[in-house]
């Protein structure tokens, strides 16, 4: 094995990690907010709102992310009102397009995951909260939200790992994150295996760190499920 080459490759790829992380964190953040909105619409009583959310989830989960990203990247400019709006200099940026489509897509998946968490909230605990006079946002923030999030966490951590992998697609709209740089290195050097191993190692370490973090969070949020501490 040519360690000098591996070292050089690793260095080049590591320089692209901040871009991957930026794509990841921004899309998880905005996607999460979007998911809250969609899940709120999805469980609404108004059938128009509910069906809109249903349609949104169907479309963004049922089609490939790549076509969604191309639609945002190439398609948005065709709308005159977008092209001539103050947002255009912003929306022209490949990075913004990538984050936007990643967030739109994960919003659909995450909404379904949150909805699964919501369904796991026992009705009697909501009743108990109502009986002491909680309602509306307070009820959601103090009772429903925490319980639902705890239930959704395992599926959500899987979705987060999927998102790390999805950031790779940004390279196809000219955002130079790790996979894009790896592809460039491969086509320059034809040393596919070495470059692949370096890039794969980076992603596996990222996944590992993320899964550790969510596991830690899960552990902290499930104190009530563990055995009661023994009194001394």
């Amino acid at each position: 094995m040519d360690f000098a080459f591996l070292f050089q490759t690793m260095k080049t790829l590591l320089a692209a990690v901040p871009m991957t992380l930026a794509l990841f964190f921004l899309s998880i953040f905005f996607g999460g907010l979007l998911a809250l909105l969609i899940v709120w619409m999805r469980v609404a009583k108004n059938p128009v709102v509910r069906n809109f959310a249903k349609g949104y989830i169907f479309v963004f989960r049922g089609s490939p992310l790549l076509i969604q990203m191309f639609l945002v990247f190439y398609g948005l400019g065709q709308f005159g009102f977008i092209r001539y709006s103050f947002l255009w200099p912003f929306l022209r940026e490949p990075f913004v397009c990538a984050v936007l489509s990643l967030a739109l897509c994960t919003g659909g998946y995450t909404a379904e995951i949150f909805r699964g968490g919501l369904r796991a909230v026992p009705a009697r605990e909501i009743e108990a909260a109502r009986s002491i006079g909680m309602s509306g946002f307070l009820l959601v923030r103090r009772i429903i939200g925490p319980i639902a999030f705890r239930h959704a966490l395992p599926a959500y951590s899987t979705e987060i790992v999927m998102m790390v992998k999805s950031t790779a697609l940004a390279s196809l709209v000219t955002v130079w994150e790790v996979t894009g740089v790896a592809q460039r290195l491969i086509s320059q050097t034809y040393r596919t295996m070495e470059v692949f191993l370096c890039a794969a190692a980076i992603y596996l370490v990222l996944n590992f760190l993320i899964l550790q973090a969510t596991a830690l969070l899960e552990h902290r949020l499930s104190r009530h499920r563990r055995a009661a501490p023994r009194l001394p």
Partner: peptide
């Protein structure tokens, strides 16, 4: 755990 795109390149 590795992006699908990277595996396709490989």
């Amino acid at each position: 755990g590795v992006p699908e795109l990277l595996i396709i390149y490989l």
